[in-house]
């Protein structure tokens, strides 16, 4: 029920991001969703892609610092209170969110929230118990 996310260390300089997208394009890799965390000197680009292993190989071979992280994807109806309903449950269960980002599904009915937790397993348990739809990686990769 978990999703593999790829993190890439980037210096904060022109062309750093373009280098990554060019390598992915040349390898015919599709980005499902992404987020970019930044500081004044560096950034961390986080990607969900259609082919995790190929992406890691392509980027590492080209000298980028890449790591794989486990994240949790939760599907909620795309309407007011959707994200809040998840966070309410997490807060009640004292689960800390390291970071999150989101996108809207193609159908436009649901939103998918990508969560990074300290302990993804216990978070998934809590979410499932409370009736949320946790998306398996395969489904997300092949959207």
């Amino acid at each position: 029920m978990k999703v593999e996310q790829i993190s890439i260390f980037l210096e904060n300089k022109p062309g750093a991001l373009e280098n990554v997208t060019r390598l992915l394009k040349e390898a015919n890799i599709n980005i499902r969703t992404l987020s970019l965390a930044d500081t004044s000197d560096f950034g961390i680009l986080r990607l969900i892609v259609n082919d995790v292993n190929k992406t890691i190989k392509v980027l590492s071979d080209n000298g980028l610092r890449v790591s794989k992280t486990t994240v949790v994807a939760v599907e909620v109806p795309d309407r007011p209170g959707g994200l809040h309903s998840i966070l309410e449950v997490l807060a009640k269960n004292n689960i800390n969110v390291e970071y999150l980002y989101a996108f809207v599904e193609k159908s436009g009915e649901n939103a998918v929230i990508i969560f990074r937790f300290d302990s993804p397993d216990s978070a998934v348990d809590v979410l499932l118990k409370n009736g949320f739809t946790v998306m398996p990686g395969e489904k997300l990769y092949s959207f």
Partner: peptide
């Protein structure tokens, strides 16, 4: 340079900072 070992455990901005 950010080493592989450092980055494997440091996906968060906070830990690199």
């Amino acid at each position: 340079e950010v080493s592989e070992q450092i980055f494997a455990n440091a996906d968060e901005v906070r830990s690199l900072q």
